[in-house]
Each structure stands twice: as C-alpha cells, then as structure tokens.
C-alpha cells in the first residue's frame, strides 16, 4: 500500500526560508511541493520520509533565491494489483460503488466487479443513487455505509490531464483505482463473520442490531 520512492529535484529556496536551518527549510519546501499530490506512475505522496543529500546553492542571475539539488525519499500511496484493502462507502449508483479511504476518494467498484447475483434498488425513481444488494442463498445483503468494505485492487490508472473538460463532468482525478468485491471474504466485513462460533456471534449481533433499529 505504501512505498518509498527516491527522487531528485532541483528547487529554489525562497529567501525568507534562509533564516532557518537548511535541512528544515528544504523539508518544508518539499512538503509544500509534493504533499497530497499525485505523481504519475508513483502514486499519491503522503509524506516526505527523509532527505538524503542537499547540493548546490547557486544563485542564478536574475533570481533572488539559491537553487539546491536535493535527493530525498517520499512515502507514496500506491496500492498494488491484487492487494486487499478496507474502505468506506462514499456513494453508490447504478454504475457501481465509489469508496473512500479518507485520504483518497477515487476508488471505484464497477458493476461487473460486484458479487453476483446482485440487484440495485434506487432510492427513488428520480435519483440515480441507491443501494446494491447481493442476493445469496435467498437472502439479500445490502452494501451500505454502515460497515467498512474490503476490496481487492483490480487496476490503478493515471489518466493524463485533459486539455478541455466538458462542462458538468466529474472533477479530474489524476489517479484512479478500480476495485473488486466479487470474491469470498470481500465486501462489507459483516458479511464474513468467520467460523461457526463467530457466525453465531455475528447472528446475535445482527439480531441485536435489528432490535436496536426497531427501538
């Protein structure tokens, strides 16, 4: 899920930063540059891990700041294909589910990766939003936001920045994760209470929940 990536970058250090120790100043500058940004094929930058080396410090003609070449490690969020992760449901519509990790929201579970046989019930005839149900053993299990959802990474893509975006389209996402919950053990964690005794506990818990809901 998280990787270290070694990167070399040449950056000017603004003059007001020069009063601070160089390591600290460059660290702040790197955080400003990379934190919470997606680098294509590397993933989403979570944090600056360490600074390996700082070189240079030349002031180029016409510039009011020294330029340094820095080698550093970044912590990148980059899920690998086949990895299992947990996330919360953000929204669900006729196309599938959208999940969120809290810090990353562009995870989609398309229709074909939902457990089958499945069924979609829209909230109302007008809205596109609704809830997906997994019909298993003549029982239907809802996929709602009451539980964390386990999913498998199917694909990670880095779409290139579009030159022109059509109006009223979704905001551009630089990193798209496609997930799948069509496998044993995947989906809302409450679906898989585990062994027999756990299953009983799970049923009890469900009954309790139902009782609580009735109240």
């Amino acid at each position: 899920m998280f990787y270290l990536s070694k990167i070399e970058h040449t950056l000017p250090l603004p003059a007001p930063q020069l009063a601070r120790p160089i390591q600290e100043a460059i660290h702040t500058q790197l955080e400003k540059l990379f934190l919470d940004k997606v680098i294509a094929n590397l993933g989403l930058c979570v944090s600056v891990y360490d600074i390996k080396s700082i070189e240079g410090g030349f002031i180029y003609p016409g510039e009011g700041a020294p330029t340094y070449t820095v080698v550093f490690n970044l912590i990148m969020f980059r899920p690998f294909v086949g990895e299992i992760m947990t996330a919360k449901l953000l929204s669900s519509d006729a196309d599938g589910l959208r999940l969120s990790l809290g810090f990353f929201d562009d995870i989609y579970v398309p229709l074909q990766h939902l457990p089958s046989p499945n069924e979609f019930k829209a909230e109302s005839t007008k809205s596109t939003k609704g809830t997906w149900y997994w019909n298993y053993d003549e029982q239907s299990f809802p996929i709602d936001d009451s539980d964390v959802i386990k999913f498998r990474i199917q694909n990670v893509t880095y779409p290139s920045i579009p030159l022109e975006q059509p109006k009223e389209s979704k905001p551009f996402a630089p990193m798209l994760v496609t997930g799948s919950i069509d496998y044993d053990g995947l989906g809302p964690v409450s679906w898989w209470p585990g062994q027999e005794q756990d299953a009983e506990e799970g049923e009890e818990a469900q009954e309790e929940e139902e009782a609580a809901a009735e109240e």
Binding site: F2, Y3, L4, S5, K6, I7, H9, L42, V71, N73
Partner: peptide
C-alpha cells in the same frame, strides 16, 4: 527526476 520508483515497501 525519479531515481528509484520503488525504494522499498512500507
């Protein structure tokens, strides 16, 4: 410049 894309998993 990306020197090492994968410098170890965490």
């Amino acid at each position: 410049k990306i020197l090492e894309a994968n410098n170890g998993a965490l």
